Amino acid sequence: MRVSAKAIAIAAACLAGPVLAQGSLAMLDTLQKGGWEVRYRDGSASRKVCVRSGREFIQLRHTDSGCNRFVVEDGASEVTVQYTCRGNGYGRTNIRKETPALVQIDSQGIADGKPFQFSAEARRTASCD
Score class of each variant (00 low, 15 high):
Ala7Asn: 11
Gly75Asn: 06
Ala76Ile: 03
Arg123Ile: 00
Val3Gln: 08
Ala26Glu: 14
Gln108Glu: 11
Val19Phe: 13
Leu60Glu: 06
Ala111Cys: 06
Glu56Leu: 02
Arg52Asp: 09
Tyr83His: 09
Gly54Gln: 06
Tyr90Gln: 08
Ala5Pro: 04
Asp29Asn: 14
Lys114Ser: 11
Glu37His: 01
Lys97Leu: 08
Thr84Trp: 00
Lys33Asn: 08
Ala45Ile: 02
Val103Pro: 02
Ala13Asn: 09
Trp36Val: 04
Phe118Asp: 09
Cys67Phe: 14
Glu98Pro: 00
Ala12Asn: 14
Arg2Asp: 12
Lys6Ser: 11
Ala26Asp: 14
Val3Leu: 13
Ala76Gln: 12
Pro115Tyr: 09
Asp106Gly: 09
Leu102Pro: 05
Glu37Asp: 04
Ser107Phe: 06
Pro115Ile: 01
Asn88Cys: 00
Ala7Thr: 11
Arg2Phe: 12
Gln32Met: 04
Ser65His: 10
Gln104Ala: 12
Val49Arg: 06
Phe57Ile: 04
Thr80Ala: 13
Gln59Cys: 08
Glu73Tyr: 14
Arg39Thr: 15
Asp74Met: 05
Ala111Asp: 11
Lys33Ala: 11
Ala111Gln: 13
Thr125Tyr: 08
Ser77Cys: 00
Gly54Glu: 07
Val38Asn: 02
Cys128Asp: 04
Gly113Cys: 05
Lys114Met: 06
Ala13Thr: 10
Trp36Ser: 05
Phe118Glu: 11
Ser127Trp: 07
Ser77Asn: 15
Lys114Ala: 13
Asp42Leu: 01
Phe118Ser: 02
Leu15His: 12
Gly87Asp: 10
Asp74Val: 05
Ser46Arg: 07
Ser24Arg: 13
Ala9Val: 01
Leu25Trp: 08
Tyr83Phe: 15
Gly66Thr: 12
Ala16Gln: 12
Gly23Asp: 07
Gln82Phe: 15
Ala7Asp: 15
Ser77Arg: 14
Gly23Thr: 07
Val103Met: 01
Gln108Pro: 00
Ser127Asp: 15
Ser119His: 14
His62Phe: 02
Gly113Val: 03
Leu20Lys: 10
Ile58Val: 15
Arg39Ala: 13
Met1Gln: 09
Arg96Ile: 04
Phe70Met: 03
Gly35Tyr: 09
Val3Asp: 03
Ser119Trp: 07
Thr63Arg: 14
Leu31Gln: 08
Ser24His: 12
Val38Asp: 01
Gln104Arg: 14
Thr30Phe: 01
Gly75Val: 02
Pro100Thr: 11
Cys50Asn: 09
Arg47Gly: 01
Ser24Ala: 13
Glu37Arg: 15
Lys6Asp: 13
Ile8Ala: 12
Thr84Pro: 00
Gln59Trp: 05
Gly87Glu: 01
Lys48Val: 03
Ala126Tyr: 08
Ser65Tyr: 12
Leu31Phe: 13
Lys114Trp: 09
Glu56Thr: 10
Arg55Met: 06
Gly91Leu: 02
Ala12Pro: 03
Tyr83Lys: 02
Gln104Thr: 10
Ala26Met: 02
Gly113His: 05
Arg96Gln: 14
Thr99Gln: 09
Arg96Asp: 03
Arg55Phe: 08
Gly43Arg: 05
Phe118Gly: 03
Trp36Pro: 06
Val19Asp: 07
Cys128Asn: 08
Ser127Thr: 12
Gly23Met: 02
